[in-house]
Design a protein around this nucleic acid. Sequence first.
DNA 1: CTGAAAGCGCTTACAG
DNA 2: CTGAAAGCGCTTACAG
Lengths: 347, 347
Amino acid sequence: MPKKSPPLSVEKRRRSTGRVTLADVALEAGVSPITASRSLRGDAPVSDDVRARVVVAAEKLGYVPDPAARALASARGASIVLLVPMITNMVFVDLIESVHDVLFPAGYQALIGITHYDPAQEEKLIRSYLAHRPAGFLVTGFDRTEAARRLLADSGAPCIHLMEVTNATGIYSVGFSQADASAAMTEHLLLRGYKRIAFAAAQLDPRTLQRAEGYRRAMRSAKRYDPALEILNADQSSIALGGELLAQALKRKPKPDAIFFCNDDLAQGGVLAARRRNIDVPNTLAIAGFNDLNGSDQMLPPLTTIRTPRAAIGRTAAMMMLDLLRDADVPTLNVDMGYELIVREST
Amino acid sequence: MPKKSPPLSVEKRRRSTGRVTLADVALEAGVSPITASRSLRGDAPVSDDVRARVVVAAEKLGYVPDPAARALASARGASIVLLVPMITNMVFVDLIESVHDVLFPAGYQALIGITHYDPAQEEKLIRSYLAHRPAGFLVTGFDRTEAARRLLADSGAPCIHLMEVTNATGIYSVGFSQADASAAMTEHLLLRGYKRIAFAAAQLDPRTLQRAEGYRRAMRSAKRYDPALEILNADQSSIALGGELLAQALKRKPKPDAIFFCNDDLAQGGVLAARRRNIDVPNTLAIAGFNDLNGSDQMLPPLTTIRTPRAAIGRTAAMMMLDLLRDADVPTLNVDMGYELIVREST
DNA sequence: CTGAAAGCGCTTACAG
DNA sequence: CTGAAAGCGCTTACAG
């Protein structure tokens, strides 16, 4: 009886890289690599018995799928691009963290791109991330170049827009109405009896401008709108800048009796500067912010603000993305997560 | 004369994916794919003439290398793993941003992992990121599981430790001495004449504990050390917690005349709480912080703190990583970036 | 300095 | 429900 050459042991089959491959798992489970692949992904009809054997084999060998090989073979990787304007703004840090917390356990890697509020830069990022064959895109807002829009559409990967909402059809978005939230704060101030309400803003990105619109809408319908009450500054938002904007606002004639800052970092700088100047907040001057950032509840006095649901937006959008990637039904294209007016002692 | 079959046009050679491949570039340049590959990477001897032709062809066709294919073929991807404890701490946001700003233009993608200050979680992340064949690792500090250490060593990818320094040999690190910085702040307070200097800390991660050590060292050598002056709280650091720690500190007998908070968010909460309680800072109670975070210069009064070079650390470490990946000489294994005592009005 | 061959580890049609 | 073949796009030795 001729000796058959012995079957290659699992050890032998390992390549030079030392990596446990799908082939190793298949050998161990006594099935073909393709069946092993299907069992592990669970996307095709495989008998429960076989699937179980493969799963056990994979666990035993400590198999970890190779994302590069998977991406190359399937023309769709396990990464999802997340484009945000800037990470020194805590709003986007919260967004990143919540997206990451949903995507990572589901086996997806969030690739974070920072656009610096520049559509040209964003377009570049999209172009270079496309090479990574991302499974999907999570982008901030709707404001981008025509070319970027086309790149996203042509990629075939699903794209979800964050932070804003739209009523355009066929577009996925998770956010809230920046204009409505801003109008709500303005109305709160009007209701409190403030008459000359200034709007102080920095950065002047699309969402800030939407907030400006909400403010105008509310002021106009109360017949209180005065362009002299708008302090618009394109510099980067910061606590220190809040103090400067307050100083500028107080120079307008007649003086405002309230300042609505488009972001809490400015508002925090505003109340601190007011205190430094011995201005009584809210009796001489009311101050309101937006976003309810860390520390706003600790200010002197604690800050009235709009609590925005960025963590919920990130989580919801990430889950929506997972559904889209699984071809699950995604009935709602546009999810409005709302906002919450937080009245504290500064107004 | 028999008609030769026409050469495949560049259009024809494109695969079903529609992607421009290296083969397309090679065809256009009239060289083999391998020569095209070498020309584009610039790592091997290729004649200038050929290299130029390939570069022109690549540009003309709009060729973008496929990271997945490259990672698969070379067993080393173009991604670098960056492991940080938490991104709600601005210190690490600054680190991420600076690393990203160096790595991305160099063609590397930073894969950000969040350990939540948990070594077991970090080990898991390392294990799962290893499947991505990262070119290198950037990790926070030296405190990790034995298994994690082994995984990193066995990966063959260079690893640089951030935020701390060591005198251990054969280890790359970029940071500063947390203990020395903390001792320097304590000495500043002692020099100012404060006698009962409390140390208030949260989170209690390794770097916080190193700061506690620095504080102890300075207090002991001034014969002022008293364990009753340490307020150590394992909760997550925040502005609000700073106020609570201040309240606790003021219950110690005899009362402290200064509080050194291990992080600026706590210190900011501390000065705000002191103001709320009408405590004169610094005359009744001095307050110092650590890290010089946003807003510390705007506090009432502005905060004395230690400015830590996290952006420089990120930049330097990322550049060191690029050098290591290029096999360039990296003469200094451990880079001490120092720190800066910023004296403002709170002490 | 340049190239032909083989392979990285997986998945997509196509059969059965 | 399962598998043999081919290929995703690149790079690593090995030749010349």
